[in-house]
Design a binder for these strands. Sequence first.
DNA 1: TATGAATGAGCCTTCATTCAT
DNA 2: TATGAATGAAGGCTCATTCAT
Lengths: 224, 224, 224, 224
Amino acid sequence: MSSTKASVVDPGMTASERPGRLAAGQDPVKRQQILDGANRVFSQMGFDAASMNDITREAGVSKGTIYVYFNNKEELFIDLCQQYKAALFDGIYQALESNNSDLREALIQFGISLSTLITSNAGIRAQRVIIGVAERMPSMSSSFYEKGPKKGLALMRALLDKHVAAGSLAIEDTELAAYQLSDLFHSGLLRRRLFGQMELEPEPEQIRKTVTAGVDLFLKAYKA
Amino acid sequence: MSSTKASVVDPGMTASERPGRLAAGQDPVKRQQILDGANRVFSQMGFDAASMNDITREAGVSKGTIYVYFNNKEELFIDLCQQYKAALFDGIYQALESNNSDLREALIQFGISLSTLITSNAGIRAQRVIIGVAERMPSMSSSFYEKGPKKGLALMRALLDKHVAAGSLAIEDTELAAYQLSDLFHSGLLRRRLFGQMELEPEPEQIRKTVTAGVDLFLKAYKA
Amino acid sequence: MSSTKASVVDPGMTASERPGRLAAGQDPVKRQQILDGANRVFSQMGFDAASMNDITREAGVSKGTIYVYFNNKEELFIDLCQQYKAALFDGIYQALESNNSDLREALIQFGISLSTLITSNAGIRAQRVIIGVAERMPSMSSSFYEKGPKKGLALMRALLDKHVAAGSLAIEDTELAAYQLSDLFHSGLLRRRLFGQMELEPEPEQIRKTVTAGVDLFLKAYKA
Amino acid sequence: MSSTKASVVDPGMTASERPGRLAAGQDPVKRQQILDGANRVFSQMGFDAASMNDITREAGVSKGTIYVYFNNKEELFIDLCQQYKAALFDGIYQALESNNSDLREALIQFGISLSTLITSNAGIRAQRVIIGVAERMPSMSSSFYEKGPKKGLALMRALLDKHVAAGSLAIEDTELAAYQLSDLFHSGLLRRRLFGQMELEPEPEQIRKTVTAGVDLFLKAYKA
DNA sequence: TATGAATGAGCCTTCATTCAT
DNA sequence: TATGAATGAAGGCTCATTCAT
């Protein structure tokens, strides 16, 4: 996911270049074209300041067409947020799910994946937009959280539980410990990024360093 | 700062009851009256969805008057954000600044103050609003961060440096450690609150528990 | 003309089932299919509120096809109004044209035919639509009136003139008398129907009673 | 009521010339100014084809102001229709209500008042507009009918009942008779006017002649 | 000085019409 | 030839800002 283009499908040609003709609102390429335009606009302006005209221009599609694919501005936004979730969280849990014998390595791998995504430009923009409307559209931000952070937390907690049972970790409250670990993954990165204090995406090396330091801090304190 | 009324000044009478007459845009009580109304509206709607009419109604002041005190909606918003910073961060650094011999206790006190504020309803709303416009008004979110988190981080780091020098802590990178500590203060609280996953302000007891666990984790791992 | 289907032609098969292939815009069955759909939509919504999409759906024909048969929405509407006239007024003048020796019976028969039609659901809808656009499309309502009421009036007047000449009626102004008679045919029916004060089509018995009373009133006053 | 200006109030100055300042949506002159503009536009275009921009221009008032006085287009229209009713029917029943001993004269006076109004330009336009939306806004056309025709009919019927009881008239069904009479008032006028077959308002002389002929026809047939 | 009625640009959305398929 | 996806002007309505009172 690049910082300006959230495209998930990419058949290598634009909607108008493709052969055949699809039913109204059924062309996935055009749909994605609209979502990409909407992503750029919503990311920069937030939901309310973004105008359908802006999206029209950015997506290179006429206004009427947008309304064939999406019933209204809010539904377009909701669909875009679904895509944010998918783009951010799909497939980053492998490091935890694969039966990894080395706890430290598994946590570091997962932490790097997670931190890389949520501190990426696209990830930061998505979080900003969603946090910005959390007061008025609580269900959206809720579902974002549940699809993303919550799932990772559950997996981490299960992993910690296993190691506690095996005697390799000594943790009283594994739920709290999972929260701690997940925050340690992006110490000094996420918050600064969200508030615009760090303009560029952190370098992979910086992420690795931060994650490693966090995991080591965590393991040193909690080892049995 | 209560969750519905952010008034910082309270001279015990409304603007119109006060004696004398101030130059246009010079009455600090009326100014605060406007900011309080704006706070309630911006907190609920975000910057763009809030209307000046809403603020007019909420502040109990006429539209013309608002424009005497603030040039436009954006400046009103900026001034309000300045106030957020003041309300949130002024006077919470004593626990660190006072010459406290007990490190653990000092960190816990500071952590509780900080976490209580930034997970309060008012604090969450302020952060949401500011994060929501971070893309379009980077300077505002930046200055918010600098006034708030950054200052606390600098103080914490200085404290850590002192203890490292004194040999009671063994930390290689105290900057990173300060980030880690500040994130551990609100593990499992801030993020859930921001995304609307935790509707009510956390109980003081929950905050104390979280902060204590974070500080203990930190100290256990970093003690010399 | 039923209230929901104004079809005048019915060749027993839909356009696409018919053999051969007609030049664009030349198939009278398809043309009627469009007019029937348009009738249903225009009747319910009026000219301006009706959308070509509604008509498309109702007619079961594509938008492009409609534009092959009719240049634009207005022409479709005009053609439909022509059809209203035909459907309403064609063939109702026999009672007057046939050389009927019994004046009373002839007037009653004609009155019943006329009142039945113009108070029918289809008739009321057609009149409403046409009256509704009379200000903007005067020629259409004019021609509707001329094809319908005016012709009947002329025939009635001729009949009255004949009876005046024969000495059986004593009428000074037979033009005015014809107007009076035509209004008496639907006393208490037409106006209430137009303004929606009578929801259902009047029963045949009610029409007969009204027409008979009107004719008798008329003849009693004007008999020689 | 002139044909282009339905103004009921006329304080001799425009809203902006008047002294003092009224609360939003409370200035009756400005309100009337809007209604007058709306009247001109709705009369010419009908409800659906009329645009709020047209009304804005015609009323000489900004769009925002219209929305202070009326919640939306439909409410503006409804209020205008109320005014149509008032302008058309208020105070035309005196001829019937005053204790008039001469039946013929009373009916003629009332008939002239009624016919003059409902065949006036303003009256015709109002009826066209209301008939044009009768299918979609049945309550409006219903209430128009009830305020207008229905009330006159009830009064006429009561009068006829009185004369039947007194033995001066012999009518079986006075309800039907009242309908007949009311239609005879405008024989050859109303319908032609509605369908645009008579461009100019009928001359007073023509109305008098028509009404007189109708009343005489009626009385001759129904006299005891 | 404070007020709030008025303004009009701009918002989201619809729909008559076109034209590539 | 028939189709219906795409267009974009125009619709109803809102709201930041102004200015007469």
